[in-house]
Amino acid sequence: MTTLLSMTRRNIKLFFHDKGLFFTSLITPLILLVLYVSFLGNVYKDSIMAFFPEGITVSERIVDSVAVGQLISSILSVSCVTVAFCSNMLMVQDKVTGAALDIAVTPVKRAYLSLSYYIATYVSTSIICITATLVCLAYANAMNSYIGFREAVLLLSDVLILAMLGTAVSSIINFFLSSQGQISAVGSMVSSTYGFVSGAYMPISQFSPVLQKIISLLPGTYGTSLMRNHAIASTLDVMEAEGIPTEIVEAIRDGFDLNIYFFGNRVGVGGMYAVLLLTVLLLIVIYVVINCTCKKVRK
């Protein structure tokens, strides 16, 4: 255990010593926030207004609050995975610098070594994503959103869970990489596709039925939906309290992926937690097993 802690400490120190890597990882979600606010704020508001038939009025604060919820849940769900890919470079860096060979000639257990990379990446990813979440919550507060303390805490816990998922996925993929170029290429691919396949850039309900079924097989989808629930549900409660018909509120839940369906069956929030946590556990086991199986490094 002391060996695991020592290796984890080494990996975390190496990450934070690379100021460029840390700030680049941190600035990515903040840039996303600025871009979303600048370019998609009105699009989101229009898409919300489309749910209200003529004759039904809704306050501007409610519309803004739903838009803010959609916006920050999109940014954070994508960031947890993309930031994990940015942060999870040490495993490959160690291969490039020769440190991996230096470690391979020691009797350290491969399981400890792989877990030390995982934990270090998780810690750095979480620190960056929690910082981004706090900025997003400050923005939501400034926009007079209905996101309260409870929702804020739930969103922070979602970020921690999704960071686990992002770290696990990136750890498995990066295990097979051996150069900085490969890592950059994979990072770019993930950044450009993950937002779509997890329903962060566009609600899944707008995809074709076949695509919806495929996307429902991916665990990241449930992470986005979980965040949508925690970022928007309180506003929907206010809507219902203000007398907006339940059918409209329910349509918004479906339209913005607060309700998510697995082959026609609605998955509740508890189910989303279960999918995410079980997937994380499974991926960590796979990651440790491949580390222990492919134990010889080639120079």
């Binding site: 290796m7 080494r10 120190k13 010593h17 440190a99 230096d102 020691t106």
Partner: peptide, 18 residues
């Protein structure tokens, strides 16, 4: 093959732990 951004002590402590 030591970690260039860490101190000598950090390097020896992390390698010793192995």
């Amino acid at each position: 093959v030591l970690d260039k951004s860490l101190t000598v002590l950090d390097n020896l402590q992390s390698r010793g732990a192995l």
